[in-house]
Design a protein around this nucleic acid. Sequence first.
DNA 1: TGACTATAAGTGAATGTTCATTTATTATTG
DNA 2: CAATAATAAATGAACATTCACTTATAGTCA
Lengths: 187, 187
Amino acid sequence: MRRKDDRKQQSIKEALLKLILSEGLQGASIAKIAREAGVSPATVYIYYDNKEAMLQDTYREYQQQMRDFLTARVQRDMSGEQLIDTLVRSYYTYITRHGEVFYFVEQFSSCPALTENWQTRSERLPMEDILNEFKRRRVLKDVDNTSIHALLFNPVKTIAVRYHDREAGTSPMLEDLIKMIQAALLR
Amino acid sequence: MRRKDDRKQQSIKEALLKLILSEGLQGASIAKIAREAGVSPATVYIYYDNKEAMLQDTYREYQQQMRDFLTARVQRDMSGEQLIDTLVRSYYTYITRHGEVFYFVEQFSSCPALTENWQTRSERLPMEDILNEFKRRRVLKDVDNTSIHALLFNPVKTIAVRYHDREAGTSPMLEDLIKMIQAALLR
DNA sequence: TGACTATAAGTGAATGTTCATTTATTATTG
DNA sequence: CAATAATAAATGAACATTCACTTATAGTCA
């Protein structure tokens, strides 16, 4: 039996991200993805049932990667200021370093057609645990986690995207933003 | 000469928004849009040079409509608390009432292929004037308008979208969010 | 009639997906 | 150790359908 070449699936995923970054979801056809990945269009269907499954699977994988990237940098004995500084700065870093992943996730999640039949798995999310712990310690304000999430991660997107093509270092706006988010969320 | 039927162009625009809401940018083909609008595909090309021009024109129009909706409710002698309460609440209302416009604008602006050749016209934006005025009066913190924008309008998206299909009234989260944004932005 | 709207019909190209076939690799023989 | 059978990976070509867009023609008004 012939072995699966794992690099093939990987190069398909990379081609998908690259094409979506440059041409958007509309421009990412199976033919283009396959050509970019150096693979036959039919090969794509060995690894995925269909195009939508490919998008869904890839989305799930990179969403998890982003979550891990963020939670890995948090310790539970941090101060509230440290927690917010770390999370906001990490998200900024992730976006500027992995722009193609970020754009894919953004486009996917802003397309109702792709997210409408989305059953939120009732798994325990580490980020939720972290926020709950800091609320219990009366460090974070006692508001719904959705609101905290919205303030922690949404504003920094704008700034990170604007400085996406800049050389290195962080935007001076990031420092202001972190202070303001701390003022918003901490008791 | 035969008169142009302005309702035709309007129904084309409405069909475009409706289709993008239900199927995303990918699913909004000329044929489907025309069918939904009760018009021949060729008729679309009387009103727009091509598909991209249709998307660009429609985006510009509704972006302006959203801006007007927000700035119309602001008075320059408001307190800082009032300003933020009004802007956040207005944006929330707009999203829940005009979900199809919001999703169209979201998908359009998160698609690099559509926004890359986008020269930001150097027009004076009313919202910028308002923010500058409130900064001059030392009501808002003296940070870049990009950061203020990011905090004012990005977090509320999450909440508005979640409660998009709810009956009526505002989310209880909105009240918490407004207080926190006030804490973040006001001196 | 001349100028413009509107459309049905049609264009070649591109879409997602399938299929018959080949290729590469392992397991089982002699 | 060869030789071969078995099997999944991989593919190019083809599928019907849809794509954005054009053309020829009819309809409508000044």
